[in-house]
Design a protein around this nucleic acid. Sequence first.
RNA 1: GGGGAUAUGGCGGAAUUGGUAGACGCGCUGGCUUCAGGAGCCAGUUCUCGCAAGAGAGUGAGAGUUCGAGUCUCUCUAUCCCCACCA
Length: 1063
Amino acid sequence: MKDATRQGDRYEPESIERKWQDRWESEGLFHAKTGSAKPKFYPLVEFPYPSGDGLHTGHVRGYTAMDVLARKRRMQGFEVMYPIGWDAFGLPTENYALKTGIHPAVVTKKNTDNFRRQMRSLGFSFDWSREINTTDPEYYRFTQWIFLQLFDKGLAYKTTMDINWCPSCKIGLANEEAQGGVCERCGGVVEKREKEQWMLAITKYADRLDADLDTVDYLEKIKVAQRNWIGRSEGTIVKFEIESQKEQSVPAPEDARKTQKSDALFLDIFTTRVDTIFGARAVVLAPEHPILAVLRNSIRNWEAVKEYCIGVRRKTEEERTDLTKEKTGVRLEGIEAVHPCTKERVPLFVAEYVLAHYGTGAVMSVPAHDERDNAFAKQHGISIRQSIAPFFSDSSGKDAVRSDKPTVRRKTVFVFLKRSNEDRYLCLDWKKFGWHSGIIGGVEEGEDPGEAATREIIEETGYRNPKFVRMIGGEVHTNFFAAHKDVNRYAEGVGMLFELENEEWEKPKEEHSLHHDPIWVHANDMDSFLNLSNFRYLWNILCKKEECFTGDGIVIHSGEFSGLSSEEAREKITAWLQKRGRGEKTVRYKLRDWVFSRQRYWGEPIPLIFCEACRANAKMHDSETPLSHAPGASTTSPVDRPQLEVSKDESRERDWANAGWIPVPEEQLPVTLPNVSSYQPTDTGESPLAEIESWVRVPCPVCGAPARRETDTMPNWAGSSWYFLRYADPKNRECLAGDAALRFWTPVDWYNGGMEHTTLHLLYSRFWHKFLFDIGVVPTSEPYRKRTSHGLILAEGGVKMSKSKGNVVSPDDIVRRFGADTLRVYEMFMGPFERNVAWSTESIAGARRFLEKIWKIARKREERSDEMDMESPKRGGSAMNEEKTNVKDGKENADEQLLPLLHKTIRKVSEDIEAMRFNTAISALMILVNEFERRETVSRNTLEILLRLLSPFAPHIAEELWERLGNPSSIVFSEWPSFDESLLQEERVECAVQVNGKLRARLSIVPGLSEQDAVEKVLEHKDVQKFLSGKERVKTIFVPDRLINFVVRDRDEALSLSRSNEH
RNA sequence: GGGGAUAUGGCGGAAUUGGUAGACGCGCUGGCUUCAGGAGCCAGUUCUCGCAAGAGAGUGAGAGUUCGAGUCUCUCUAUCCCCACCA
């Protein structure tokens, strides 16, 4: 012990860590071999943006986690490629260049050097021979190449559009980057600005991006986020005929949409709830809807409508989406819409709450079943008609509908009876059935619901003078098995509120009060008292005064469709409409096309040239682009790849829009960034590249006429959409990666990154990958087999780390003070991997102490090694052989009592790493180490097992001690320990003893003890006896090796119970 | 408003999926060692009552199911994240 503190024997991470980092690198231990005979494992972390701030603790968390997996897989015999690179294009570097005039490439070099140094100091097992950089022309030539493929297939197109324009960044933003009308980069308010932009048609892939989520292993919440972003919804397009109020129908101008009736004008609306169509009381258009212009002559109040629309368009996005304000709108006078089912005339409105860009920009307004429509209807005097009844049916339990019994339909009233002077309601406690309800009654022949309710109240409860107050919501349906009548009851009910005029009361006849007791329940207790879902629903309506049921239910008041479920009705009504040419099933997505242009310098130039002459001849060469073969395509056969669906109309339209845009010939790629003197964006909003005439002016590759380069560059997302492919073959100059390398390494087996990238980056890279699959460049249709995400590391106190708050923790500092292994262990131990955790420098000490303990245990053993070596029977064998010694042999010299714990630890650590429960894996190692510490000695074999389990987390110290034990080869390729099921069993286990579920004693028993023996043993126990005396044992619950529970009751109680049972 | 989480000691967090709540770590308390210091060693540490043995309470709140609930069901509340008039 004293020796352990001797100079030179102390745990000094600094020197150990540097030693092993150098050795791993000089031996090239982590270089992955393409085509290896071993099974491959490709773990991936998001490559960082090399900012000037250096690596932060969040990077360390993700990189360590995947490093743990990579290292474990190597020990398990996999060929592992754990690559890293730099996503180095981006605004911060450009802004820095703007300020200082230093070329972004120079800044990038400086930053990546720093990042690389930091990563090395943490001992990540990256394959540095595969390092990539998105700003390297040898890399981005292929980014450009992929863009040209997209262009060639009609998936890149230029369009004039309102873009989100950030006046301070002077940059166009994708919708995704301008959420909430605020610039994602600088936080400034985003303006609308018309601009020509390159777009990528990601929406063409929306269906596959959604559907293929079923084929990958992503965390459920990531799938949900992706699905929400894509926003698929199945719905129906319904055609409403527009009619002038005077004439039969509005004569349609030539360009208006037409269907069967050649002279009628139809308006398409989109709905996901066609089952509510009989409740449609109006049709509402977005202010931008093009049909308004068509109808202007028929609209009597056109001036007012026009004014409204202009007013709306002037508003900012924020003002329009402010939910709290009232729902404005204007009625279109002089015209009406014809309900396609009922042929009723319903009013038309224009209102800003209808969004132009979603669905068809027009909706049917169903005030009874949609909250926005409901609010709108109330403000504009639209009537409300219920067409869906909430439906309640028990599917399990004793009230569940029974298919072997007949069903009786009945009109029913559900009544709440309020006391006049008190906030209490009369409820029924149905003793035998366990129901807690209000008053239920059937409506007899010839009765109206009010009469029925009054009669029921008097008969069932005895109160003589109930007074009707109001109805509660609309019709409510309930289906249940009524045991007391032995039939299924289908109740078509209405909710009603009554109040007592006075307390006059007469005892009801026994036949009426037999099944239930009346109770006055206070309003505050109603929620917990009522246990029938239909009454709970009605009570909620009564309290919150909701009028609008937006869920699925049973269709009512809907002609031939009445009685169907919402789901059935959606199908049947759509079919009905379709048959009559008045509607069709359709799928809509929220996802919109990707704005791909940036007016900046520090990005990949878009490799296109605009030729005026060629534009003039556009039709001559629209199908002959210079790209005839795909350099990345090689031998991959295009079998099974879905054809891109670009309709003829669309492609012609797009060709025209793209006319004159000539791709840079492939052999001229990459189009490199020229040197500029100023990185300032131009005032016209064009990229700084536009100022360099010598770069911009080029001859047209097709006709040789003077032409100009595209000066827009690509967004950040471009280079990161395919980088994982490049790792497979990073030096390839012919194509983005060779076919053999891609076939060996892809798809990525496990991709971990931040939650913030689970929508945009993940979606964009899946899109590109699917496209590359379609054109035969990559062998799989999904890039990542598995995706996980880690939580953020917050600053101490749980707030975000930020430079401005001065609470940023630098990994460099921590490594210097505690060592890389300590930082790695701490970050893995600090909390559940997927959750946000607050940093705590104070707590790091625990991780360091843990490693110190291991160090001391190993040093102590080393001092005694002579003795130990004597014990060892085979000294002659080489260390290599000894390393292979399996665990059972270790039993000879290992402390036998340690084996169950040792093997439990092996199992737990192995399983926890796979499930990313790194915190509990480390806790298991701590428990094992604490146990080692308590012992005089630990055998070499046992210690080696610990070191191997530890090595993924703390590779340097594990490697050092491993070497000191005499192992000549690295622990990196030692075998991952396996556990022996038979050794898991402890000699004695503790069994809990409970009396009526309360813990009364703990008993050490032999595992596998029978119930009888256990009970016998327990009954001898004094602590237990005193809780059993004077009681009768009713029941004994026995869970082998875990617990024994005596259920007892007082003798007296038992007596009285048995007496009462006699009656 | 919609979707997704989360809620356990002074703190970070465990809990074999319905079976001994608080593992492991931090912090704290007492002691030891040391010239000294501590990131060393030993012991203790959910709360209340009690000198103690012990007893009672206890996983955001309230109800329920169960022999038994942190875990299952219902109703709330709070916090966080994402989306947001998506028909």
